[in-house]
């Protein structure tokens, strides 16, 4: 029983970090129906920027905020330079461009910071908030989950209460009509990219701040698969779906896989892919996503 509870807590911890990256994916997908394969790498670069700022002596949370601003500006630049000129309905060139960004960003990060894992500053108070027999709920888990919910609330408000949020929702609902009604499409999508990158950087910083993990250039590859699965599970165009998807994937990874004897522990990534396969086959638009109808 203790073990189960502990594993559920682990699931919430992992799930929240996956959800933060998944939220970034969802934002970009909502706007452009594009899956950004470079999202994880952008987030990793942002987290490295945070680490660098912290090493230079900037207070931790300021470093995180500056890092988020930096990666938002970078993402806005990338969108303008590489994404905007392509037709959003033709997926292949866009997938290829984001794969190219994946390689380039990963290589640049490895060239600047090398492959050796480095320890990341503690963003949250260490120690446990709650101990019962052998069950420990660390402050890290609480804050990770809390920041995930907070980010979602901020995004929700931003998208529903502000003018640029309205424009963003209009574009994601119907690109042609919103262009006809005078919305400037390009900058609106750019805004979406920037927002997504900022969320991703926060997610990667929290992920790397996990006491048991270290930061290294390839750390986001596994997280990318988990987050993508989370995003697809929740429905690729639903913000709160990302949270549900993230928690489900965390649950599968930390609880379900542990209790099924014939799945070895290192198969959690494969379990995520199997979940992705089942979800996409049975319900391609995810749990909370909107269905698309093809017109001829």
């Amino acid at each position: 029983m203790d073990l189960l509870l502990q594993r559920i807590f682990d699931a919430i911890t992992n799930g929240s970090t996956y959800a933060l990256i998944a939220v970034a994916m969802v934002l970009i997908f909502k706007a452009t129906t594009l899956i950004n394969f470079a999202q994880g790498e952008q987030a990793m670069l942002g987290a490295f920027a945070v680490l660098q700022l912290w090493n230079w002596g900037i207070p931790m949370w300021w470093a995180v905020i500056i890092g988020m601003l930096f990666s938002a500006a970078l993402a806005a630049g990338l969108e303008r330079a590489f994404i905007r000129k392509f037709d959003p309905t033709d997926h292949l060139p866009l997938v290829i461009i984001t794969l190219g960004l994946f390689l380039v960003i990963n290589a640049i990060a490895a060239i600047i910071w090398r492959f050796d894992p480095q320890s990341f500053p503690q963003l949250f108070p260490s120690g446990n908030a709650f101990t019962y027999n052998n069950v420990r709920l660390s402050w890290y888990s609480i804050f990770a989950f809390g920041s995930c919910v907070l980010v979602l609330l901020i995004f929700q408000t931003l998208l529903t209460k502000t003018k640029v949020g309205l424009a963003f929702r209009a574009v994601s609902s119907n690109l042609e009509s919103s262009r006809l009604s005078g919305i400037n499409i390009g900058p609106t999508l750019q805004f979406g990219w920037a927002l997504a990158a900022a969320a991703g950087t926060l997610g990667a910083s929290i992920y790397a701040a996990n006491p048991v993990l270290q930061i290294e250039p390839s750390m986001m590859l596994r997280a990318l698969i988990f987050s993508v699965t989370a995003a697809a599970l929740g429905g690729l165009d639903s913000l709160w779906g990302a949270l549900i998807g993230g928690l489900t994937i965390g649950f599968v990874q930390s609880v379900v896989v542990q209790y099924i004897p014939f799945i070895p522990n290192e198969m959690s990534l494969s379990a995520a892919v199997v979940v992705l396969l089942i979800v996409l086959t049975l319900r391609p638009s995810g749990v909370l996503g909107t269905r698309t109808v093809e017109r001829v």
């Binding site: 899956i35 997926h91 997938v95 990534l269 892919v273 992705l276 396969l277 996409l280």
Partner: peptide
């Protein structure tokens, strides 16, 4: 699954397959 999954979703799924092969 590609009969039901299209475009980007297929890209996702196949990328996942590639990622799990070593494990």
């Amino acid at each position: 699954p590609a009969l039901r999954i299209r475009g980007l979703y297929l890209a996702l799924l196949t990328f996942g397959l590639a990622a799990v092969f070593p494990s």
